[in-house]
Computed example of a mutant assay.
Amino acid sequence: MESFENFWQIYSNLVLTLGINAMLALSIYITLSCGMLSLANAAFMGIGAYTSSILTMSYEAPFALALAGGIAMPMLVAFILGKVTLHLSGVYLAMATLAFGEVVRITVLNTESLTGGALGLNGIPNQTQWWHVLLALAVVLAMLACLRRSKVGRAFEAIKEDETAAGLMGINTNANKMLAFVLGACIAGLAGGLSAHLTYFIGPNEYGFDRAVEILTMAILGGINSLIGPVVGSLFLTLLPELLRGLNDFRLVVNGLLLVLVVLFLPRGLWDPARFKRLFGRQAKKGAQ
C-alpha cells in the first residue's frame, strides 16, 4: 500500500494526463470518422480550459458548473465556426481550422484582464481527481461506441467514404458534419477543463500549432479504424518521452525515429483489428495442422 502511495504521489499527474490525452485523441477521431481533417481541437481545448478556469477563479463557480461552461463554450464556437468552414474539405478545412487556432491564441494574448495574456492564468484550484478523468473517459467511450453503431455512425462512415454519394443516398451531409464537429469540440473542451484544474497553470502557447499536431498524431498513430486505436496512440505518445528520459539529449531523436518507423511499417496504426485477425487466423491454421 505504501509503495502504491509513493507511486501515485510521483506519477499521478502523468496517469491523469494519459486519460486527458485519450479524450483529446477521441475528439479528433470523431471528426476524422466523418471525413473531416480539422486542426481546431487544440483551440477548442484552450477555450474549454480558459472558460472553466475563469469561472472557477473569477466567479467562484463550483467545479461541475465550471466544467459545464468549459464544454458549452467550445460547442457554441464550433457551431458558429462550422457554419463558415464546413463547406471546405481536405487540406482547405485543415488550413481554415488551423488559422482559427491562431485567432484564438492571439485573442487570449490581447485580453490580459480576463485571460492573463502571455503570462497565462496561475493558481487554478487543483480540483481534478482521478475519478473525474476516469468517469469522463468512460462516458466519452460509451457515447462514441453507441454513436458508431447507430444510424448516425453509419452516416458518418458513408460521408467519409464518399460525401457526394452519401448525399445522393439521402444523407444530410451538412448536418452530420456539423454534429461531428460540435461533438469533437465538446470532448476537447471537457479535456481542457479537466487539464486546467489539474496543472494549476495554463498559457496560450499550450494550445497552439504544436498541440494541434500532437492531437492529430495520437489518433493517426493509434489507428482510426476503431475506438481503441486513438486511446492506444495517446498512451504511446504520452508515455514514450517518459520511457526515453534516460537517453537525455538523444531522447527527441529516438522519439522521432520510433514514430517514423511506426508510420512506415504500420500504416494503419498501432491498433489494427484487420491485422490482428490475419495474425490470429494464421496461428489457428498452424495449430490445426
Rank of each mutant, 00 (worst) to 15 (best):
R154C: 12
G116V: 01
L98C: 04
G233M: 07
C146V: 14
L114F: 13
Q283R: 15
F265E: 01
A66I: 04
T164W: 13
L147W: 09
T199D: 11
A66F: 11
L179G: 02
Y200Q: 13
L135W: 12
L257E: 03
P62R: 07
Y207K: 00
E102S: 03
N255R: 11
V260Q: 03
Y200D: 12
A288P: 01
M36L: 14
G70H: 09
G246I: 05
A118F: 13
D272A: 09
A212E: 08
F44Y: 14
L24T: 03
L134H: 01
G116F: 06
N6G: 04
L55I: 02
L227T: 05
M1W: 14
L257N: 02
L86F: 11
A96R: 01
R251G: 03
L137I: 07
V232M: 13
A166I: 01
A22L: 03
L252P: 00
F7A: 07
M36D: 10
I224R: 09
D210L: 14
N172R: 11
V254T: 08
L109C: 10
T115C: 10
F250G: 04
M75Y: 09
V140A: 06
T199S: 14
K160W: 13
E102F: 10
Y29K: 01
T17N: 14
V77K: 00
G19C: 05
L114S: 02
P273N: 06
V91S: 12
G35C: 07
M73P: 00
D162I: 08
V133A: 03
R148M: 12
